Amino acid sequence: MTLMDETTRGRALERLRTLVGMESPSRDVTASRAITDVLAGWFETAGATVERVPAEAGVHLVMEVAGAGARAQEAPLLLIGHSDTVWPRGTLDGDVPWVEVGDTVRGPGVYDMKSGLVIMLAAIELLQGRSHRPVRIVVTCDEEVGSPTSKNLLRQVVEGVDGAIGFESPHPDGALKVGRRGSTRVRIDVTGRAAHAALDPGRGVSAIDELVDQLLAIRGIIARASEDVEVLCNSGTISGGTRANVVAAHAEAELGLRFIDADSEHRVLTVLDGLTPVREGAVVTVETLSHRPAWLASAADRALLERVAAAGAPLGLHVTGRPAAGAGDTNLVGSLGVPTVDGFGPLGGGAHAASEHILLHTLYERVELLAAVLG
């Protein structure tokens, strides 16, 4: 395997600078079209066939790179990335400018996860003229907001693949992510009946009191489920009512739930869907705002990790992996039973923060590692 030289490293850095310079916040369709046009052009030049998939949130990309040589007839390996970021337009001119200082590169989206897109492209270019397996690549445009328009696409692109690699950031020590907690956001909405709190309190039905009782019940549900396997529940927002002398007619809360396995996830969500009012006259509804299923690492996932580690050994790279708390597109892919690893991006830190950065030498290491896995 030919390792990256000064020219290929310089090209990778320049492409990263270009992508970070193209601010692409989630649901900005114009920005999504612009960055996917650039990515499509680069991958087409590298030999990929490119399909643009328009969506309400922007444009997804599905790309195929034919295999070559002795590995040409193998099943493809799926590479998973996203082009959207949490940063609004104008961030580059504000709190998070592009900065290069030694081995550190800073900028909005540089870590999460435009560097991952560069790794995919540079590795494919390293393989040109060599024997390698087929590669399928999907780049979604709405991962940062829960992938509302790309879930069905992800279900489609896993058909026939041998495994999948996600290009989100790794653990802080560089370990890959094998297994991810499921992440579900729900809104508990309560409708009551307004009344004067002193003159006619018996006519009112307090939505706030009902919501408090429901949240206490949910706390008990989570506690019972956690006796078997830990379930996390965070009350993110609570709102309701108008003033102290009016019985509240409406209240709501948004909860963030995290699950290690599909069984606890199913049991808890089923109970939440069946919540009933405690007091007569109240109406309780539960809405799922976003859902990424739990991905509990399987033997097949660990076998893929071992294959990646074996490819890295001749390069002097020690590859390890373990479960992660955060969720991403690989939650769905892994939960479908496709052998999956994630965290193939470079080392760095500060995702979603003004300190977002990568360590440049690890980007080059990931390129060489990916080329070794595919070749």
Rank of each mutant, 00 (worst) to 15 (best):
Ala72Trp: 05
Trp98Val: 14
Gly102Cys: 10
Val105Trp: 08
Gly109Ile: 08
Ala75Lys: 11
Ala122Trp: 00
Ala68Pro: 01
Glu125Ile: 00
Leu92Ile: 15
Ala68Lys: 04
Leu126Thr: 01
Gly102His: 04
Lys114Ser: 03
Glu74Ala: 12
Asp112His: 10
Gly116Met: 07
Gly107Met: 13
Ala70Asp: 12
Val110Lys: 13
Asp95Glu: 15
Met113Phe: 07
Trp87Asn: 14
Leu79Ser: 00
Gly107Ile: 13
Leu79Ala: 01
Gly69Asn: 05
Gln128Pro: 04
Asp84Trp: 08
Leu77His: 02
Glu100Gln: 15
Asp112Gly: 08
Ser83His: 02
Ala72Met: 02
Glu74Leu: 15
His82Val: 05
Glu74Val: 07
Met63Gln: 06
Val110Ser: 12
Val101Asp: 14
Ser83Cys: 15
Val110Ile: 15
Pro76Glu: 03
Arg89His: 11
Tyr111Lys: 09
Thr85Leu: 10
Gly94Cys: 13
Ser115Thr: 04
Val105Gly: 03
Pro76Ile: 04
Asp112Ser: 12
Gly129Gln: 09
Gly102Pro: 01
Thr91Pro: 02
Asp95Met: 11
Val101Asn: 01
Ser83Val: 15
Leu92Lys: 01
Ile124Arg: 08
Gly129Glu: 00
Val99Gln: 15
Ala70Lys: 13
Arg71Leu: 14
Gln73His: 06
